[in-house]
Amino acid sequence: MKNKSQEILSREVVIKLENISKTFVMSEKSSIRERVFSLFVGHKKRKLHALKNVEMEIRKGEFIGVIGRNGSGKSTLLKIVMGAIPPDKGGKVTTHGRIIRLSLGMGFDPNLSARENIYVNASILGLTFKDINEKFDEIIDFAELHDFIETKVKFFSRGMRSRLGFAIAVHAEADIFLMDEFFGGVGDANFKKKSVKVFQQAFVEGRTIIHVSHQLNTIEKYCDRVLVLHKGEVVALGKPDEVIPIYEEVLGKTQNKKLKKTTT
């Protein structure tokens, strides 16, 4: 294990986050009268600070866990790394490699078949048709969807969808996986075995993974480093066994607060 963490340090940085904050401005729903009025005065707006000054460097092949309570900014962080949403002014995201974000119910056009979705997704990831043709059977094998190749994805269960997404990401050889509570209890034992294999080989193959999850056992088992977020701020960043107790403390504190509130 020591070897691995030393070797990581010699590798190139593939994700660099500098001073990342994110403020969402939300306009509230309003009546027609207010809406017409607001044409001249401006909307009623509410600000939400989803992330505050996150700094981080991630090297090639690292497996990073992100934990935190609901609303702590985990998903926002992934979207910013993805480039899907921009950070506030002054923040900077630098990434190297092809990124795919995997989340439940993601990434597919429900009205297209599994085959078409595989082609669209892989093509957007940068694969040529020739590559996709070659890998098509492997993808179907991995996702265990032999009987549903021509079925529209809207008829797929959550489990089937996430299997398909994961299979595409693995075989299209995306360099960076952003997994947003992706294995929240889906997949049977067989599929889990396959995904574990992917995780274990990630380091050797130089595949970088950021895994947002509530399942502490997975985090503990595979992550090289774990980031704990609380209300948009980094509470801790380090080895799982050092950091998870801190998380549990944070979790306990807020739960205690809640308990107190309900009792009073």
Partner: peptide, 9 residues
């Protein structure tokens, strides 16, 4: 959006 959100291109 389902593509923009999940893959860079």
């Amino acid at each position: 959006k389902y593509l923009i959100e999940n893959i860079q291109f």
